[in-house]
């Protein structure tokens, strides 16, 4: 049974079909990349998964139960974690407190889990800094640390490498590899090198609909995808 599945999931913004009739399934332990051109509906789609956006139609199932009607915080509590496309941290709180808020919610051990999560993203020595004082790239990493600290079963990352330096991207790729054993990962990503390196499978979204789905190599070879997205041909 899939960890997460949707059927007929759609969202219209006043006539604009941002997401249309998407049926999608994610297996436990998989790393799935969600790609597609700008405005394809990726953020809207994952927003509906984690309850930030109310769908116009369709259902979402998580771990065997229908969660379509649950508010966002209940879905998070059920085992999802989400990082925003536009970095969203508690700018005036310390990095430690940012992560501690994530740990405390699941009644975890703050003294142990917070440094652990910060270490994994390479921010161990910045625990006492205010999150707002970090560089943009570091803020993204902090947000990922908040995701890790929740120990989620499904981690949804919306363009996590945007704004990271090359060396940081390498570390990120290593981190995702390591995380594979702990969580299922749904990754929205524009950096194709990263996608090809970490994804077990790729779903391509175009104009709100699933254009193709399959292993990285298949997707790379798919003509339609090339035309719509890769622009190579």
């Amino acid at each position: 049974m899939s960890l997460l599945s949707t059927s007929g999931l759609s969202k219209e913004f006043g006539g604009l079909r941002a997401v249309h009739d998407v049926s999608f399934a994610l297996e436990e332990g998989e790393v799935r990349a969600l790609i597609g051109p700008n405005g394809a509906g990726k953020t809207t789609f994952v927003g509906m998964l984690c309850g930030r956006i109310e769908p116009s139609a369709g259902t979402v199932r998580f771990d065997g139960t229908d969660i379509s009607r649950l508010p966002a915080h209940r879905r998070i509590r059920a085992g999802m974690a989400y990082t925003f496309q536009i970095t969203s941290v508690f700018a005036r709180l310390s990095c430690h407190e940012n992560v501690a808020l994530a740990v405390r919610r699941r009644k975890g051990n703050v003294a142990k889990d917070v440094p652990e999560a910060l270490r994994r993203v390479g921010l161990a020595d910045r625990a006492e800094q205010l999150a707002g004082d970090l560089s943009y790239g570091h803020q993204r990493l902090l947000e990922i640390a908040m995701g890790l600290a929740q120990k989620p079963r499904l981690l949804i990352l919306d363009e996590p490498t945007q704004g990271l330096a090359d060396s940081e991207i390498e570390d990120f790729v290593a981190l995702i590899r390591e995380l594979k054993a702990e969580a299922t990962i749904l990754l929205i990503e524009h950096n194709m090198a990263v996608v090809m390196e970490v994804a077990d499978a790729i779903t391509v979204l175009n104009f709100g609909e699933v254009l193709a789905e399959g292993a990285p190599a298949e997707i790379r070879a798919n003509r339609e995808v090339q035309a719509a997205y890769l622009g190579t041909g």
Binding site: A72, I76, R77, F84, S88, V89, L101, A102, R105, Q150
Partner: peptide, 9 residues
Amino acid sequence: NEDRAQMLG
């Protein structure tokens, strides 16, 4: 940051 707090559950 209300959004972030909500998305922490």
